[in-house]
């Protein structure tokens, strides 16, 4: 059985400007010990998907349709209290390496210990011991558990966050932009760490990012989102080898290949659509250089182009010459 199976998830937000359909029919799954990358521009719905899984949506957001199965159990059907109690134990989340994900007036060790004590019912001493082990795992000096967040560098703070995420031996860890705002060398270290976790602990990983360069390093599968919908998904090698969707193509092309030809590619013009508007046809069509009339009227469904490689485009695989 899959570890995580999301089926036709729809999460909408009620705003003063209307209903924003942030996630509009998203389905994918993650196996144990597998890392799936969720890719797309800002505002495409990737973070909302993550928040839907742990049910940490803001007050005006709601899961209106679909299911989220964790080890077969539908999280959307659980009571609020049950959802809260199983947080962190089953699914933990590492936020963007924003400087503020750690409480500045609390010692870092204590922030990990409180999670352990709450879910695993250990004593303070036992939890402290476990925290030190976790720090070892993420390669931080375990004597620093009594330091405050501001005494750490960005990369080290991210490690602390990862140690914290591992505290209750979760089945799935969601990393929301885990390496953004870190410099390249530190990025590489964090990615190595994520791989280590994936392989040694068999934890499932959902890596949300708009940075394509890290996908190849960690992720086994990639899901590409645009304007609340999935436009392409498949195994990493498949997607790297052949970009079936025009958006995927543009996305990858905007990351110049160091070894490739020195041509300046055409940039992707325009902006993502407003998700509270009615969007007929394919949501990408205003910015797609290959859009036809069919694209403007009929919304393309996600179809399997080759085994395991899906694409939502009327011309998937056939549009590029």
């Amino acid at each position: 059985m899959e570890l995580l199976k999301i089926d036709n998830l729809k999460t909408y937000f009620k705003t003063s400007k209307g209903i924003v359909r942030a996630v509009d029919g998203v389905s994918f799954s993650i196996e144990r010990g597998q890392a799936v990358g969720l890719v797309g521009e800002s505002g495409c719905g990737k973070t909302t998907t993550a928040l839907s899984i742990v049910n940490l949506l803001p007050e005006n957001g709601k899961i209106t349709e679909g299911s989220i199965l964790l080890d077969g159990k539908d999280l959307t059907k659980l009571s609020k209290d049950r959802v809260r109690k199983q947080r962190w134990k089953n699914v933990s989340i590492v936020f963007q390496s924003a400087m503020n994900a750690l409480n500045p007036v609390m010692k870092v060790g204590d922030q990990v210990i409180e999670a352990i004590m709450y879910h695993n019912h250990l004593t303070y001493e036992e939890a402290r011991k476990k925290t030190k082990e976790l720090f070892d795992l993420v390669e931080i000096d375990k004597n620093r558990i009594d330091n405050y967040p501001h005494e750490f560098s960005g990369g080290m703070k991210q490690r602390v966050m990862i140690a914290m995420a591992l505290a209750c031996d979760p089945k799935l860890i969601i990393g929301d932009e885990p390496t953004t705002a870190l410099d390249v060398i530190v990025q590489a270290q964090i990615l190595n760490l994520l791989n280590k976790i994936k392989e040694e602990l068999n934890t499932g990983l959902l890596i949300i990012t708009h940075d394509l360069s890290i996908l190849g390093e960690v992720c086994d599968e990639i899901v590409i989102m645009y304007a609340g919908k999935i436009v392409e998904k498949g195994r990493t090698e498949q997607i790297y080898e052949e970009h079936l969707h025009p958006y995927t193509y543009k996305l990858f092309k905007s990351f110049p290949d160091i070894q490739g030809e020195r041509i300046l590619e055409e940039a992707l013009m325009g902006r993502a659509p407003n998700l509270s508007d009615h969007l007929p046809g394919c949501r990408f069509n205003p910015r797609c250089s290959f859009a036809s009339d069919k694209c403007r009227i009929e919304e393309p469904k996600l179809k399997e182009a080759s085994p395991g490689h899906y694409c939502a485009c009327h011309y998937g695989g056939v549009w590029n010459g």
């Binding site: 936020f95 963007q96 409480n103 500045p104 914290m164």
Partner: peptide, 14 residues
């Protein structure tokens, strides 16, 4: 509105 509060909620606290 800070991130560390969201993290605290994510840890399952009341």
């Amino acid at each position: 509105t800070e991130d560390y509060i969201t993290t605290a909620y994510a840890k399952g606290f009341k």
